[in-house]
Design a protein around this nucleic acid. Structure first.
Length: 191
DNA sequence: TAGGCCATCTGGTCCT
DNA sequence: AGGACCAGATGGCCTA
């Protein structure tokens, strides 16, 4: 809980102040959240955490809350703990993305796949595998793949969601689609 | 410099 | 009640 170290600079005057009519800064920050918790992960740190002016509820200049009987210090502590949990949650989500990247067949690129590319390739990979299964069963293929970007409606665009850079790469999906189908044919023929 | 991607903070809502 | 989840906002980094 390294974020909690930041509470050291908490203003003593705020201690045990009930929250009623307490003004919350427009930017929602409490100056304690100099987001430092990435020391553990070694990842980049932010000088200023995002802003808090999110959502519709906080769009005003100030927010007045009803009495909740928790001190400002306690509230700040909970916020920091919540931030920490959210950070950990996002890290685990990113870990999952990383694992997904590792199992998706794709041409090695200089840069790693973005999240949207990862999801798109994963989707296409699943569709390709589905087609292989259908093929092996002698059923009609579920999905039709197109090879170029001039696809007309109704067909699945393999590069859907891919950015310009990735379009310059060989079409990964086409490759593994062909490989999968070739293997599928071989396995069928060898019977 | 603009745009894409990302990490983080934050408050609201849902769930246990 | 508290944690998980979600989406909006913001700012940093990188690339074309």
């Amino acid at each position: 809980m390294r974020s909690l170290e930041m509470t050291a600079s908490w203003n003593e005057e705020d201690e045990d102040v009930e929250v009623e009519d307490m003004e919350i800064r427009k930017d929602g920050r409490d100056d304690l959240t100099e987001s430092s918790s990435d020391e553990a992960t070694g990842k980049k740190r932010r000088k200023h955490g995002g802003s808090a002016s999110s959502g519709s509820a906080s769009s005003g200049t100030t927010i007045r809350r009803r009495k909740t009987c928790i001190s400002a210090r306690e509230r700040n502590l909970r916020r920091l703990e919540s931030n920490e949990r959210e950070r950990m949650r996002m890290h685990s989500l990113n870990d999952a993305f990383e694992q997904l990247r590792e199992v998706i067949p794709h041409i090695k690129m200089e840069r790693k796949l973005s999240k949207i590319e990862t999801l798109t390739l994963a989707k296409n990979y699943i569709m390709a595998l589905t087609n292989v299964i259908c093929d092996m069963r002698g059923e009609e293929k579920h999905y039709t793949f197109v090879q170029d970007m001039e696809s007309d409606g109704g067909e699945i665009d393999l590069n859907n969601g891919m950015d310009e850079t990735s379009n310059q790469e060989p079409n990964n999906n086409s490759i593994y689609q062909e490989n999968l189908e070739a293997r599928s044919d071989n396995s069928v023929n060898s019977r």
